[in-house]
């Protein structure tokens, strides 16, 4: 066995490493580029001194090189390509070189999305209202649960496991099936009439999202798994002595929550909010996403839309709306922070 290893090692050394080393030597010691310990020589003429700082930059950039390439290919190019396509009517056409036939539309696609699409604006408004309602609920629940687990209770690990569980198993079809069968709404909530009471007392505009919230309360809570862990980690990092000191000064638990706990985990709450908005927005059963997807796959073909290009338009509008919501929430949080300070 040892002999085999030795042989493999010798083979790698002589046959593989040797040429590689020679190649490396050639690449760094030639007429065009000559690398010394302290300087870099280009075309045998221009000297560039190698400082520690420059060396570090080059090494660092080498490590993230793959990310830069990936970003250009899989993030930057598609984003701008989508923006470009969103101004065209796009048809599939085998005759063209790119496989697409483009017809310039300017901002007509955007106009169509807001003015003549019978569904999109409605769906978008419903999504925004829901998000405005669901995000605070999720965050409050996550905070409550995190604080509960952070108490001195038995079976901490068990409870953390229970509350993190949904993160593992939630996938589109599974949740879709549960929704279809009505398992995402608690039967006992429907038994009490208080939802009807709420619905009767506020306008339609607010009542619909509230009703949706209660119908999917479990779904909303299921989105809180990671947020619970993030907030819990934050809670555990607060120094216990601060609480003790405040208690000696006569602060009630209620006061120390508002004056100590909340301010110290505020940054984590912002992170959780961003996470919640993003994960709810890219969730594959989200109405807007389903709508956009159906247009791409042309499973629904309203005559007025222009397929490919139009769905690019919708994606962009969706992206902007989503970013605005994130900005709104984060802005609210930091504004509050400034006020309380």
């Amino acid at each position: 066995m040892r002999k085999v290893f030795e042989r493999v090692g010798r083979f790698l050394d002589t046959r593989l490493m040797q040429p590689l080393r020679r190649l490396g030597q050639f690449l760094t010691h030639n007429k065009v580029l000559h690398v010394d310990h302290h300087r870099l020589r280009l075309f045998n003429r221009f000297n560039v001194p190698i400082t520690n700082r420059r060396r570090e930059s080059v090494i660092g950039l080498t490590f993230i090189f793959i990310w830069i390439v990936g970003y250009l290919i899989f993030a930057l190019y598609p984003i701008f390509n989508t923006l470009y396509l969103s101004m065209f009517k796009v048809y599939f056409d085998a005759a063209e070189a790119s496989g697409l036939r483009l017809e310039f539309q300017g901002i007509n696609n955007y106009r169509a999305a807001f003015l003549s699409d019978p569904f999109f604006v409605q769906i978008l408004i419903r999504y925004v209202l829901r998000l405005l309602l669901n995000v605070p609920v999720t965050i409050v629940f996550a905070l409550v649960i995190a604080m509960l687990i952070n108490q001195n209770i038995r079976g901490k690990g068990f409870w953390r496991t229970v509350f993190f569980f949904p993160v593992i198993i939630s996938s589109g079809p599974v949740i879709g099936e549960l929704m279809n069968q009505g398992a995402t709404t608690l039967p006992s909530i429907n038994d009490y009439r208080f939802i009807d009471l709420i619905l009767a007392n506020v306008g339609d505009f607010l009542a619909n999202p509230i009703e949706a919230l209660f119908n999917e309360i479990l779904l909303v809570l299921w989105f809180a798994g990671i947020q619970i862990l993030i907030l819990l980690a934050g809670l555990q990092k607060i120094d216990k002595e601060v609480y003790e000191a405040s208690m000696i000064d006569g602060a009630s638990p209620w006061e120390s929550f508002w004056k100590i706990t909340l301010p110290s985990i505020m940054p984590l709450i912002s992170i959780s909010v961003v996470f919640t908005v993003v994960s709810m927005s890219v969730f594959s059963l989200n109405e807007v996403i389903v709508y956009i997807r159906n247009i791409i796959l042309t499973e629904s073909t309203p005559a007025l839309t222009t397929g490919y290009g139009y769905s690019a338009t919708l994606s962009w509008i969706y992206f902007v709306v989503m970013s605005l919501i994130i900005l709104l929430f984060v802005g609210l949080i930091s504004w509050r922070r400034k006020v309380t300070e």
Binding site: A75, P78, V278, I296, S315, M322
Partner: peptide, 14 residues
């Protein structure tokens, strides 16, 4: 890149 929804990058990627 975390905030960009996959719909945006999906068309060109497809």
């Amino acid at each position: 890149t975390f905030i960009v929804p996959p719909q945006i990058t999906m068309l060109p990627m497809f």
